[in-house]
Nucleic acid binder design. Structure first.
Length: 385
RNA sequence: CAUAUCGGAGCACCU
């Protein structure tokens, strides 16, 4: 049962809920009765994929099969509500927990508060936080970070700082997530000095910055158009033995491009290749932008050759943006090359992708190609809008 | 360490 459940969970984590369900059904067929953990893992597989209805249905199935849901089942569903923007369901799940006599623990409250925050129900989140305190359930750094980052995102900065104070009063140590949130929200308010001071506090407290924290700082410098400091802090990160990831690279590349430093961008591209860091589409976009400034089409072409083979796993939006950029700058051949690569690696290419392609072909006066692509699109079963 | 909650960049198409 444990082995099956591990496999089920692995499918859930890789966003394959149908596969998870297959394993689950296989357990039932092979008389390996799924236990509570198996059911919970399946609920999460659906919940993480945004399939809330199916997730709730698994809870019912669980009860029909004589297994009592526990607080993990409930927390999993509560968290899923936030991801699916289902305001109504949060209340329903809370009352379902109550009617079954399941008391919320810290994670349960955190999940519910977080979901309320992410659907914009700040008052309900706050009320729930109060009842958490009244029920003597201990808030932790996650509780406060949910509140702090949620209120920041809503632009309610003074409220969010109140929670920071409350957290310190309770002597809950600030986690690196909290530090990163604070850096992020100060920099978005244009308070670079505050962001820097948080970053320094963090180092002094012995809670060492990781690649996420550094990226938040790079972005802070990016927002203030300070490419040199962004560059320096990137060096500092490497000096501290922290491996930059594709997001860190692309964030730095973005500010460098805006500051007209394409050579530096290509230098970073070379470093990524040396370190075998996969090119994500944002980094590819920035590299191609810098190639464009330098009129270096050969490198641009090579970048596309080296892009991750698993293009299907990255954002379609940014791939389309990349196609659009290539088309706009008249690089039709490279645009087509990327398109073929997308075709080869994605099972379904959306109308949006075809639209970008068509628009740019037409703008470039390639009407023969336009008609050809239009035909491919119809062949693929996509109706022109 | 078989299952649940928080932090970083980029967001096109459509309207």
């Amino acid at each position: 049962v444990v082995s099956y459940t591990s496999l089920l969970n692995a499918y859930g984590r890789s966003a394959k809920p149908e596969k998870a369900r297959e394993i689950f059904d296989m357990m039932k067929r092979n008389s390996r009765k799924p236990n509570r953990v198996s059911y919970n893992a399946l609920i999460d597989a659906y919940g993480s994929a945004g399939m809330l209805t199916e997730a709730v249905e698994v809870l019912r199935e669980m009860e029909r099969d004589g297994i009592q849901p526990d607080i993990v089942s409930i927390s999993t569903l509560l968290a899923a509500c936030g991801r699916c923007d289902q305001i109504v369901k949060i209340d329903g799940i809370l009352s379902a927990a109550k009617s079954r006599g399941i008391q919320l623990n810290t994670v349960g409250y955190n999940s519910a508060i977080g979901s309320y925050m992410s659907v914009g129900e700040y008052d309900k989140a706050l009320r729930l936080y109060r009842s958490m305190r009244e029920s003597n359930v201990k808030p932790d750094s996650v509780t406060f970070n949910v509140l702090i980052s949620g209120y920041c995102k809503a632009g309610k900065y003074s409220e969010s700082l109140k929670f920071l104070d409350e957290m310190m009063d309770l002597q809950i140590p600030l986690s690196k997530e909290v530090y990163s949130s604070l850096i992020c929200s100060y920099s978005k308010q244009g308070q670079l000095t505050e962001a820097e001071s948080i970053f320094n506090c963090m180092r002094e407290s012995g809670c060492y910055p990781d690649v996420v924290t550094y990226t938040a700082m790079i972005h802070a410098y990016s927002l203030t158009e300070n490419w040199k400091r962004a560059w320096d802090i990137f060096q500092d990160m490497e000096g501290n033995g922290i491996q930059p990831d594709p997001i860190a690279f692309s964030s730095l590349m973005e500010v460098l491009n805006r500051a007209c430093q394409p050579e530096k961008v290509l230098q970073l591209a070379e470093l990524m290749r040396e370190k075998h860091i996969p090119l994500n589409s944002s980094a590819a976009y920035e590299i191609i932008s810098s190639c464009s400034m330098l009129r270096d089409w050969k490198t641009a072409s090579q970048v596309i050759e080296h892009m991750e083979p698993s293009l299907s796993s990255i954002s379609v939006g940014i791939l389309n943006q990349l196609l659009h950029f290539l088309g706009k700058t008249g690089k039709i051949e490279i645009m087509m090359k990327l398109f073929f690569k997308i075709l080869a690696s994605c099972s379904n290419v959306s109308r949006a992708t075809y639209s970008v392609l068509l628009k740019n072909l037409l703008a470039a006066g390639k009407w023969r190609k336009y008609i050809e692509v239009l035909q491919w699109m119809e062949d693929a079963g996509i109706q022109p809008s």
